[in-house]
Amino acid sequence: MKVSDVVEKLGLKVLSGAKGLDLEVTGCYVSDLLSDVMGKADAGQIWITLQTHRNVMAIASLKDLAAVILVSDLLPEDDTAKQSEEENIPVLGTHLPTFEIAGKLYALLTK
């Protein structure tokens, strides 16, 4: 499944980094602790978080993540969006809180 499929099926907004929508999704990791993501997330995963600052993109890039989903209508900070464009890693948005969007993505990826 591609990031674009996830966007379409879960009704996500593409907030930045649309050039990365073709990236292949291998799974998902949910955490707001950066060291936790650094230590445990894997390449190709979508990261669900409420953190909106630029370090999120630094980690997404270092870990080769497929995309970041910001929950509860949060928006990326300007330099976060900029780095997402530069790295071609999409930042996606949803009005749903973490539990609900994670549940939906889990259902989609394990179907």
Partner: peptide, 14 residues
């Protein structure tokens, strides 16, 4: 910001 979980040095060691 999500830093300061005290997992950095343990992550390094691992």
């Amino acid at each position: 910001m999500g830093f300061g979980a005290g997992m950095g040095l343990p992550n390094i060691r691992k």
